[in-house]
């Protein structure tokens, strides 16, 4: 039998090792994507890749600007739809709805988090795309618009639940003070609660943005995957994530490396967005 002190010492080392695993994975992924990117960066050049608008690997064109724009446009459009909806929802759940209703509505909305993205993609393909094709009159409906709507629904629960948490975290004294001064409930929400929980809501939106940029399969299913700057929101486009998913298995040589550059751009983009969220979140806690 081992002495308990011995077990204690061993376990201390062991959990330290486990603790560093996340850090190691992160470093490993970063180094590895960077290494994969190097051949393309050397051969094609960073400027031609980042700012090239043409992606045609069999003709040696590896510009990812169109996909970058695709990701950004779809995400922004999704945010335009999702933010008012989710913040409205958060206020509803935290302040407006009777407890009985919010107790049903909250888990109902949270269920949306767990639904697999392929199911969103499937419903988008079967219901949304034909509808959009009907509206726009041309094409198959696979478009920026379809992708943005699907994304908006996917990030709705994320933004809603974090915003609701931060609304609830505002001390009740604030609200009571406003009410005591004669403000209506809405004035208290508008002038006291919302400003007080602004950082939390911004963090929620940033996390939602991160999730939107990283979404892959649902996008592949509804956006049409054309590597081109979309002419309008009813035209097909391609996202950075979709570019990797559709082509990684078949790619070799510089093409494969160019996909790693796509991954690198995605990685850096997410890093920037999440660091922003992290910083805002920390400032709130201080």
């Amino acid at each position: 039998m081992m002495s308990r002190y011995f077990v204690d010492r061993i376990s201390r080392r062991l959990v330290l090792c486990f603790g560093t695993v996340a850090f190691l994975i992160l470093i490993f992924i970063a180094v590895f994507i960077l290494k994969g990117s190097l051949p393309a960066l050397e051969e094609v050049g960073i400027v031609d890749i980042l700012f090239g608008t043409k992606w045609y690997p069999s003709h040696e064109a590896f510009g990812i600007l169109a996909m970058f724009a695709g990701s950004v446009i779809v995400t922004l459009l999704a945010l335009v739809m999702a933010v008012p909806l989710s913040v409205g929802c958060a206020i509803f759940l935290a302040e407006v709805a009777p407890r009985r209703i919010s107790n049903i509505a909250r888990p109902a909305i949270e269920l949306l988090v767990g639904i697999p993205s392929v199911v969103y993609g499937l419903v988008g393909m079967v219901v949304l795309c034909p509808f959009i094709a009907h509206l726009s009159g041309t094409g198959s409906g696979s478009s920026v618009m379809a992708a943005a709507i699907v994304l908006a629904i996917m990030i709705l629960p994320t933004i809603t639940s974090i915003s609701e948490d931060s609304l609830r975290a505002v001390p009740t004294l604030y609200k009571e003070g406003a009410l005591a001064l004669g403000a209506t409930h809405w004035q208290a929400i508008h002038h006291v609660l919302l400003p007080a929980s602004r950082q939390g809501i911004v963090t929620a939106v940033i996390l939602g943005t991160g999730r939107a940029i990283g979404e892959t399969m649902a996008m592949v299913m509804v956006i049409g995957n054309s590597p081109i700057l979309p002419a309008n929101i009813f035209a097909p486009a391609r996202t950075l994530t979709g570019n990797i998913a559709v082509e990684i298995a078949a790619a070799t040589g510089i093409h494969e490396s160019a996909l790693f550059v796509t991954g690198l751009v995605l990685f850096i983009l997410i890093m920037i967005i999440n660091s922003l969220g992290f910083i805002i979140c920390r400032r709130k806690n201080d």
Partner: peptide, 16 residues
């Protein structure tokens, strides 16, 4: 790094 890892898109994990 745990926070950052949580944000990395699934497809990047897939590539890796």
């Amino acid at each position: 790094s745990v926070e950052l890892l949580a944000g990395i898109p699934s497809i990047v994990f897939g590539m890796f």
